[in-house]
Measured scan of single mutants.
Amino acid sequence: NITNLCPFDEVFNATRFASVYAWNRKRISNCVADYSVLYNFAPFFAFKCYGVSPTKLNDLCFTNVYADSFVIRGNEVSQIAPGQTGNIADYNYKLPDDFTGCVIAWNSNKLDSKVGGNYNYLYRLFRKSNLKPFERDISTEIYQAGNKPCNGVAGFNCYFPLRSYGFRPTYGVGHQPYRVVVLSFELLHAPATVCGPKKST
């Protein structure tokens, strides 16, 4: 009989979020998941679920829940969905086509923008091939755009693969920082350890 609540607040209220190319993952297990707390949290810009209804989450049990978190621009949030393409979905964070879970995003301009620009948040701009679902690539190898080998030196046709967002408070909404948490639900042939409040007695 599990009684402790799942530590969703640790994920959602973290002081610093990860850059999207180096997205953070927390495994959540052996706890009671009260999703209504999240669902009623006012400032969400997006709360979209795939393969599961957000209002039914509290009735369900899962083997594991993974909480992935990172920061992207407002106009990139739409790429955090199954079957998407674009710089983020291709080179930074890719969801599987059969994704079961929820994508939760909110504007973090007050936290993550600075006058003069916040350059701490990076994304991958160049990559030889697209990421596989949930693949994480933190390499900083110089990207070779031409035929000539770069030998690890940036220059003509040789690019550092990461780019900084440089968030400023005055940017338009599409270019403002958004914090994103992706909850993915794993249902294995194993005992369920993460259940909603109704199922955990």
Rank of each mutant, 00 (worst) to 15 (best):
L162K: 02
P191S: 12
T201H: 13
V52Q: 03
Y93C: 01
D34S: 05
V181Y: 02
Y35G: 07
S36F: 04
A190N: 12
A81H: 02
N13S: 04
N30H: 09
G166T: 13
F44Q: 11
D59E: 15
C102S: 00
V77D: 02
T63C: 07
G86C: 01
C102P: 00
V180K: 00
L5Y: 11
F45K: 15
N87K: 11
V153I: 12
P149K: 13
A42S: 08
P43H: 07
L162G: 01
K56E: 14
G116F: 09
N92D: 02
Y35T: 08
L122I: 11
R27V: 14
V182D: 00
W23Y: 07
V11E: 03
V182E: 00
F167W: 04
G116L: 09
H189S: 15
R127I: 02
Y165F: 05
K148I: 12
E76R: 00
Y171W: 12
V180H: 00
Q176L: 03
P197C: 15
K198F: 13
G86R: 02
L188H: 13
Y66C: 06
T55M: 12
I28F: 15
G172N: 14
D112S: 00
I104W: 11
N13W: 00
R136C: 06
V182I: 06
I88E: 00
N87L: 14
R16P: 04
A14Q: 14
Q84P: 02
Q79M: 03
L183R: 00
G51C: 01
L125G: 15
F8I: 07
N64V: 10
D112Q: 00
G83L: 08
L60Q: 10
R25S: 03
T55D: 15
N75R: 09
R163Y: 09
N151K: 14
N118P: 07
A145L: 10
G116W: 07
K56N: 12
I72Y: 01
S19M: 02
S53Q: 12
C61N: 14
P177E: 04
Y91D: 03
K26M: 09
C31K: 06
G166Q: 13
G152W: 06
V11D: 03
D112T: 01
G83N: 14
D98L: 05
A192P: 12
N87S: 12
T201C: 14
E76K: 01
N147W: 09
N40Y: 06
E186N: 14
Y21T: 05
C102G: 00
V181H: 01
A89L: 02
V194P: 12
G101S: 00
I2G: 14
F185I: 05
S200C: 12
L131Y: 02
C31N: 07
K48Q: 09
C31P: 06
A18L: 03
Q144S: 11
N75F: 08
H175Q: 15
I80L: 05
P149Y: 09
Y165V: 03
R25C: 02
G152Q: 12
C6S: 06
C102L: 02
W23T: 04
C150L: 05
E10H: 06
S200W: 12
P96G: 05
A18C: 05
Q79F: 01
V77I: 12
N109F: 06
D68H: 02
K56T: 10
G172M: 10
K26G: 01
C49N: 00
V181C: 04
V11N: 02
F167Q: 04
N40C: 05
E135W: 04
P161E: 04
A145N: 13
T193K: 13
G152E: 12
V180M: 04
N87A: 15
E76Q: 11
T140Y: 08
L187P: 09
F70K: 02
K26W: 04
A67T: 05
G51F: 01
T55R: 11
F156D: 15
F12D: 02
S108L: 02
Y35W: 15
T193V: 09
S184N: 10
L5G: 10
K148R: 13
N4H: 11
L57M: 07
W23L: 03
A105V: 08
G86H: 02
N1Y: 06
N147P: 14
V65S: 04
F47I: 10
I138P: 10
L162V: 08
N4D: 11
G117M: 08
W23K: 02
T193S: 12
N118V: 06
L122Y: 15
G196V: 10
F8C: 02
Y123H: 13
A42E: 09
L5S: 11
I138T: 14
R163M: 11
L38C: 03
I104Y: 10
R136W: 04
K26Y: 06
P169Q: 09
V194S: 11
K26D: 05
V52E: 02
T63S: 12
C49D: 00
L125N: 15
E76P: 01
Y93M: 01
F99Y: 03
A81M: 04
Y39N: 15
T15I: 03
A46N: 11
A14I: 04
G74N: 03
S184D: 03
S36D: 13
R179Y: 04
P149D: 14
L187A: 15
L38Y: 02
A89E: 01
Y165W: 03
Y143W: 11
C195K: 09
S164F: 07
F185Y: 08
D112R: 00
P161I: 02
E186P: 05
W23P: 05
N151Q: 13
L162D: 04
G86F: 04
F41S: 10
W106A: 01
L57Q: 03
K128P: 13
Y121F: 12
V52P: 04
P96E: 01
N118G: 10
G101E: 00
N130F: 08
P82M: 00
N4I: 07
A14K: 09
F44H: 12
F17D: 04
K198M: 13
A81W: 03
V115M: 12
Y121P: 06
